[in-house]
């Protein structure tokens, strides 16, 4: 269980994790806690799935990774199978059911444009669904974590 102190801590925590030998000690000092208590708080938050993970936020474009958002029009009777096919790709990180004619929305990343195209044509073949929009990114105006709200 998370404590009321954890909730206060959450409000204060920044989305940036310190780049230091003892990062939890840095956060602990800012919050007036001990390093040990800070790590324990992080473990509670992770157990409750409030914290997902701590990791570097890579700029995929700088790594020459191409990504796209794909919208598919999937009839209800084909939905289960289609989701199975799509989710099987490690290249697909997010996949949602949304209201509207295009109802299945997923993000896909690959090492090259050619690989991305191949994944999409594979998905078309395996699902038997052709109604697919490749909604390529033209410009990123904003991309930030929900935590910054």
């Amino acid at each position: 269980m998370i404590t009321s102190k954890d909730k206060i801590l959450l409000k204060k925590l920044q989305p940036e994790f310190p780049l230091a030998s003892r990062p939890f000690a840095v956060l602990a000092e800012q919050a007036g806690l001990s390093e040990k208590d800070m790590i324990a708080a992080f473990k509670r938050l992770q157990k409750e799935k409030i914290l997902r993970y701590i990791a570097p936020m890579f700029d995929m474009r700088k790594l020459s990774i191409v990504s796209s958002l794909i919208a598919m029009r999937v009839p209800l009777n084909k939905q289960k199978k289609a989701v199975q096919v799509i989710n099987a790709y490690p290249n697909v990180s997010h996949n949602y059911l949304r209201a509207g004619e295009y109802n299945v929305w997923f993000t896909v990343s690959a090492a090259s444009e050619r690989k991305l195209k191949r994944i999409l044509s594979d998905i078309r073949k395996k699902t038997g669904i052709d109604a697919m929009l490749d909604l390529k990114t033209r410009k990123v105006f904003k991309s930030r974590a929900v935590f910054d709200l």
Binding site: P15, E16, L51, I54, M57, F58, L63, A145
Partner: peptide, 12 residues
């Protein structure tokens, strides 16, 4: 700019 930051990622 390869790494934007070391991030603490939360479940919204």
């Amino acid at each position: 700019g390869i790494i934007r930051r070391m991030g603490i990622v939360y479940g919204h």
